[in-house]
Simulated scan of single mutants.
Amino acid sequence: MYVCICNAIRETELRCAARRCRGSAEAIYGSLGRAPQCRQCLDEAEDIIADELSSNGMGISATA
């Protein structure tokens, strides 16, 4: 499933990047060499990132 249509970022790609790079959706998009465009995907992306981090026991930093 695509999370970000503008950048063609799939959920699996986002989850993999979240395991490698900590931070907000914008930071993780940056690690993929992309930037949010229309920004409609950011809430869903943040939820997916939080889910990925919690399921891997990484937790989320309050400053992330």
Score class of each variant (00 low, 15 high):
Met1Pro: 12
Val3Ile: 15
Cys4Ala: 11
Cys4Asn: 03
Cys4Glu: 06
Ile5Trp: 08
Ile5Arg: 12
Ile5Glu: 12
Cys6Gly: 03
Asn7Thr: 07
Ala8Thr: 05
Ala8Glu: 09
Arg10Leu: 15
Arg10Gly: 09
Thr12Tyr: 08
Glu13Asp: 14
Leu14Pro: 00
Arg15Ala: 05
Arg15Val: 00
Arg15Cys: 14
Cys16Tyr: 09
Ala17Glu: 06
Ala17Tyr: 02
Ala17Val: 06
Ala18Thr: 07
Ala18Glu: 04
Arg19Met: 15
Arg19Asn: 09
Arg20Gln: 15
Arg20Glu: 13
Cys21Glu: 13
Arg22Met: 05
Gly23Leu: 10
Ala25Glu: 01
Ala25Phe: 03
Glu26Met: 06
Glu26Ala: 15
Ala27Arg: 15
Ala27Glu: 14
Ile28Leu: 10
Ile28Val: 15
Tyr29Met: 15
Gly30Trp: 00
Gly33Val: 03
Arg34Trp: 00
Ala35Asn: 06
Pro36Gln: 11
Arg39Ile: 09
Cys41Ile: 03
Cys41Leu: 11
Cys41Phe: 10
Leu42Gln: 08
Leu42Ala: 04
Leu42Thr: 09
Asp43Tyr: 13
Glu44Pro: 00
Glu46Asn: 14
Asp47Ile: 02
Ala50Tyr: 07
Ala50Leu: 14
Asp51Gly: 12
Asp51Trp: 11
Asp51Val: 02
Glu52Trp: 08
Glu52Asn: 07
Glu52Ser: 03
Leu53Ala: 10
Leu53Asp: 01
Leu53Thr: 05
Ser54Asn: 13
Ser54Asp: 15
Ser54His: 10
Ser55His: 06
Met58Pro: 00
Met58Val: 07
Gly59Asn: 08
Gly59Cys: 04
Ile60Pro: 00
Ile60Gly: 08
Ile60Thr: 13
Ile60Leu: 15
Ile60Trp: 00
Ala62Trp: 03
Thr63Gly: 06
Thr63Ile: 08
Thr63Gln: 09
Ala64Lys: 02
Ala64Cys: 07
